[in-house]
């Protein structure tokens, strides 16, 4: 992966580089050097702990969007024993901002659907920066129905800035595509586990987000509007995005407290991007556990609970 770090990660990355250099030069019998290295490593642990255990909302937003954050295909290669990618919505096109396929996870067959971002200009253009067109939602729905038909659990990994605001997207009615998915996912007779892995960008995220379990990775975000969009409307100043992010309550633990998600999946200290293998393992175990529990529930009851859960969301007085 390309070298990339956030402002608040700078000190950590620099210390890591220093340690690596020292380690490379280290000769096996230099006890003094070894001792120094150990001290530095301890220093690093303390620093990481210090930085990451007190993250601000805006720092979490930055982590959720981190250039090195694992995307769907990074997880697919680590958590599946086999993955057969399928393409197209059978109506218009194949939307490359969403990856869908038949996945073997553990010893279980599941339908896996996830947003996919790129890491450089070329791949970002190919993936449309993870912003989905109508055909992406329709492709996802086609796969979900296929899963339901053959009683395969459905896993969705959510990481998108939002649905694509484009000309074709409106012509082919992305609003209808999203609405249709919410409507159809409601009654699917198989377990659905939705995991927000990075950015849960509004309707674009919700379009594959109706699940019996909706989980968020610790440093992911989920919001009705991007902090930037909110800031430019409320304060007429996009630079107030960090303040807007706080107002909107978009971090995992805040949303858990509001009862809008089912649970938070802890990330390795320092965020998913620092230990991708470990993160993938945590994710895999969690998926298997959730699916195992959900498969014990009768489909009718599963659906009833799903309807009730979303039906209870919101706050008002009367």
């Amino acid at each position: 992966m390309a070298k990339f770090y956030l402002d608040f990660e700078k000190e950590i990355v620099e210390l890591e580089e220093k340690i690596n250099k020292k380690r490379d030069k280290l000769s096996s019998d230099d006890e003094k050097e070894k001792e120094e290295l150990k001290i530095l490593e301890n220093e690093l642990d303390v620093l990481i702990e210090e930085v990451y255990s007190n993250l601000t909302t805006w720092q979490r937003v930055q982590l959720a969007r981190h250039h090195n954050r694992p995307y769907t295909l990074d997880y697919v290669s680590r958590i599946t024993d086999n993955f057969i990618e399928l393409h197209g919505d059978r109506l218009y096109a194949d939307d490359t901002s969403i990856v869908v396929g038949l996945a073997l996870i553990g010893s279980k067959s599941m339908v896996l659907i996830g947003h996919q971002k790129g890491r450089d200009t070329k791949s970002n253009i190919y993936r449309n920066f993870g912003m989905t067109n109508p055909e992406g939602y329709r492709k996802a729905l086609r796969l979900m129905k296929l899963g339901a038909k053959f009683k395969k659990p459905i896993i969705t990994l959510i990481d998108t800035p939002g649905a694509f605001p484009g000309k074709g997207s409106e012509e082919r009615c992305v609003a209808e595509a999203i609405a249709r998915n919410l409507y159809e996912m409601a009654l699917l007779r198989v377990p659905i586990v939705c995991i927000i892995t990075g950015e849960g960008g509004s309707g674009g995220a919700l379009g594959i987000g109706i699940g019996d379990r909706v989980l968020m990775l610790e440093n992911s975000i989920y919001s009705v509007i991007s902090p930037e969009g909110c800031a430019s409307i409320i304060f007429r100043d996009v630079n107030k995005a960090p303040l807007a992010a706080e107002s909107l309550k978009i971090t995992s633990y805040e949303l858990l407290e509001l009862g809008l998600i089912d649970d938070v999946i802890p990330e390795p200290l320092g965020g998913a991007h620092r230990e991708v293998d470990k993160m993938a393992e945590i994710l895999k175990n969690r998926i298997l556990k959730e699916v195992e529990e959900l498969e014990k529930i009768e489909p009718e009851i599963l659906i009833e609970k799903r309807i009730k859960k979303f039906g209870n969301m919101g706050f008002w007085e009367e």
Partner: peptide
């Protein structure tokens, strides 16, 4: 959606659409 209600406002999309699915069924 009414952004002053944060994610809860987004979830009203889910709430209403899911109920409509049940109604249609």
């Amino acid at each position: 959606a009414r952004m002053m209600e944060g994610l809860a406002s987004l979830m009203q999309m889910a709430k209403t659409s899911i109920k409509l699915a049940e109604f249609s069924r």
